[in-house]
Computed example of a mutant assay.
Amino acid sequence: MRIWVDADACPNAIKPILIKASERCEVECIFVANVAIALPNSKWVSRKVVPSGFDEADRFIEESVAKDDLVITSDIPLASDCIDRGALVLTSKGEPYTKDNIKQKLGMRDFMDQMRSSGFDTGGSAPFGDRDKAAFANALDRILARRVQA
């Protein structure tokens, strides 16, 4: 298993959680972004800087992810593509995207895009807080614990 992080949109608050978990469980964690991200020296943590451009990080992750890898992203189309390749997907707020819920998430995303393009103010997502950070840490621990038990 590798952990792929869509680092362009990853909240800074979960980066230390990912780094500690990666080192503790000896799982490679790759932060993918179109800018260099400061990371500690670790044999388990690395960065991949992709060219600037729309969805370049997403494209790299999608092409690189393998069955049973874990992808950290809140990008629903990327999540769907990774699930199709057999990967596990977790949002930065600790919500798993699965074969069972991804079609509904895609449908809602498309509906909200239509609403926004029609001029409706749909608001935005709630700010990332301590509860989200804890939910992410707990969900990540559960996934990594299952990996160790397998």
Rank of each mutant, 00 (worst) to 15 (best):
D75K: 02
D69Y: 04
N138Q: 13
R109D: 12
L39A: 08
I72H: 07
A57L: 08
D100G: 10
T98V: 01
F31S: 00
I30G: 02
V5N: 12
V45T: 04
I102H: 08
D68E: 15
G119R: 07
V45Y: 01
D113A: 15
K20H: 09
I30S: 00
E23M: 07
D141T: 08
I14K: 10
I14L: 10
F120V: 13
I143K: 11
N34F: 02
Q114L: 15
I83A: 05
G123Q: 06
D141I: 04
G123Y: 08
I30E: 00
D55I: 06
I3F: 04
A137F: 05
T73C: 05
L88T: 10
F54D: 15
D68F: 15
F60K: 00
A79R: 02
K105T: 04
A33E: 10
F31W: 03
K105R: 15
R85D: 05
W4V: 05
K99C: 02
A38V: 12
M115Q: 15
I37Y: 02
I102F: 09
K43L: 12
R85G: 04
V50L: 07
S92K: 01
E62P: 03
L88H: 12
M1P: 12
R116M: 07
S22D: 04
I61Q: 06
F120K: 09
S118V: 10
L140D: 01
V71S: 03
A36L: 13
